[in-house]
Write a protein that binds this DNA or RNA. Sequence first.
DNA 1: ATCGATGCAAAGTGTTTGCAGCTGT
DNA 2: ACAGCTGCAAACACTTTGCATCGAT
Lengths: 140, 140
Amino acid sequence: MAHVREVSIETRLRDCGLRPTRQRIALADLLFAKGDRHLTVEELHEEAVEAGVPVSLATVYNTLHQFTEAGLVRVLAVEGSRTYFDTNISDHHHFFVEGQNEVLDIPVSSIQIGNLPQPPEGMEIAHVDVIIRLRHKKSR
Amino acid sequence: MAHVREVSIETRLRDCGLRPTRQRIALADLLFAKGDRHLTVEELHEEAVEAGVPVSLATVYNTLHQFTEAGLVRVLAVEGSRTYFDTNISDHHHFFVEGQNEVLDIPVSSIQIGNLPQPPEGMEIAHVDVIIRLRHKKSR
DNA sequence: ATCGATGCAAAGTGTTTGCAGCTGT
DNA sequence: ACAGCTGCAAACACTTTGCATCGAT
């Protein structure tokens, strides 16, 4: 059976110092199989359960944080309550659809940012986030 | 006693359809007396109590949301858990110091953003947030 | 067999809500 | 006096943690 991909994900986990357990492999599969994704813990948990891998919510939280530390995913701060995890760790920006809690990628090339201000003394820039908040046009 | 400012804040509240109560006036005073500020509910609550205006936390939450709807302040989504309120409602951007939970304004003129991507069909841009995340330089 | 991972439930945060009593007009 | 606020505590959503069991090596 299609074992080829599993092996590579296993290796990837191992390289991060994470033991490739059933749950981690399943979650990593869900995360990376479908291209770039923006998921909440809840959503990923639901997907896992639907895929027949009954992980617990707590494990999804723990696993996503481990993945974050390992640099496999990154955290997206778009909206107060919920935390989004982004499987696209390359440099890019986001649309956020208000009310719909939907996140869309913006390739870094479609925005021009120039003239970044100097960070205060002793600080350096860790990351630049651009979030373009969208709403539905009222016109109808 | 210095009643002049109070009156103007009262008027401002009234204009928003908010009854100028003790608590609202006190909170508005704290918010707007010291220039542009970035505060969490907790911080504002503490300031109010220290200033001898014992409002309840719930009232601070309610009041800040009312102020937000009235357009007196705006919500800042920089970080997952806590909600920041920004008293500067003009167009500008932010530094965010990781680990320190500190927010600093960046005047809109010090960043050049060009070439905004087209929003998806039927959507329009509500707001563009730029957050420059900072960390301390490791050098020492 | 060992040490780490998992699941559950309980504990934490930060935030919201319901309702009795208080306050501004 | 009335409608709208406020305070408290209880309810909530999301997230983290403790501990006994399970699983990968």
